[in-house]
């Protein structure tokens, strides 16, 4: 992994005219956006702005109605979610969705799926290559557990972990596929200020140490402004602003979307 730490000029993720409709309701409206390679980028916007829908479109859970999504230069819309995962995008969920009745380490082992090759026949006969791969999977999973700070809790069922540990495990599972891009849906939701600071530091460390691009949906503006290098603001499925945190903070459209027209007007004066 050579892309360490620096925000590249290239665009790892890009969309052109992306549109998603639900029975008349336009959830994402001809959206053009891009995420710079190696950045920590944020998607913000008021409730119902279409942020999670946006994630679902990228990961292939929703088929978009119009437009194109490009990942690493290749078109990914129309592919199934598992193919997109294999291409190098992984995600976490707003309401944590772990494999509850599997142990923590097994969750991470499942996360490595895109890199595994062994077949069921090999598993039955215990072929050397399968054994080797299993051992390697397990070893990597242990390392990742350590990386997310869950060493020693690997054999606990994931449903028995604490809330914060579950969040971390979910990120660990997303990292296990060694993605180029990771989508975090409200990683600090439900956390107290101390945990939030830890998580923020963790996200930064993630990018700095492993060098993957991170896109987050986040409500906590302090977190967003603190770590983002690129912000996209959505409202009613449309992009209303994009740029550096400093630009966004002073952007009137954004303030209006968040606080209403009056607030924006009074700020202008």
């Amino acid at each position: 992994m050579a892309r360490k730490g620096k925000v590249g000029e290239t665009r790892i993720l890009e969309s052109v005219g992306m549109t998603k409709r639900f029975e008349g309701l336009v959830a994402v409206d001809s959206l053009d956006f891009h995420i710079p390679d190696g950045a920590i980028a944020s998607i913000i916007g008021p409730n119902g702005a279409g942020k999670t829908t946006f994630f679902n479109c990228i990961t292939g859970f929703y088929e978009i109605d119009e437009g194109e999504i490009l990942f690493d230069g290749a078109r990914i819309n129309g592919r199934s979610p598992d193919q997109i995962a294999r291409a190098g995008i992984s995600r976490t969920y707003q309401n944590i969705r772990l494999f509850n009745n599997m142990s923590a380490i097994e969750n991470i082992m499942v996360g490595q799926e895109p890199h595994l090759k062994s077949s069921w026949i090999g598993a039955i006969f215990g072929s050397p290559s399968t054994r080797q791969e299993d051992a390697l999977t397990e070893e990597r999973a242990s390392e990742l557990l350590h990386f997310v700070g869950l060493e020693g809790k690997g054999d606990m069922l994931s449903k028995n972990l604490s809330y914060g540990d579950q969040r971390r495990l979910e990120i660990g599972r997303a990292l296990a596929s060694q993605p180029k891009l990771i989508l975090l849906d409200e990683p600090t939701a439900g956390m107290n200020p101390r945990e939030t600071i830890e998580t923020t530091a963790f996200i930064r460390r993630l990018r700095d140490e492993i060098g993957i691009t991170i896109v987050l949906i986040e409500h906590d503006m302090r977190v967003v402004m603190d770590i983002s290098e690129h912000i996209t603001v959505l409202d009613y499925g449309r992009k209303i602003a994009e740029g550096l945190p400093a630009d966004i903070q002073t952007n009137l459209d954004v303030i209006e979307a968040y606080l209403g027209r009056g607030a924006a007007a009074s700020l202008e004066n």
Partner: peptide, 22 residues
């Protein structure tokens, strides 16, 4: 095995299992 873990992942949450590349 890997296959078993795939199955269990599907049992637990099929959507997420797909998103993991299964």
């Amino acid at each position: 095995s890997r296959t078993g873990r795939q199955w269990m992942a599907i049992r637990e949450d099929e959507d997420v299992a797909t998103a993991m590349g299964i």
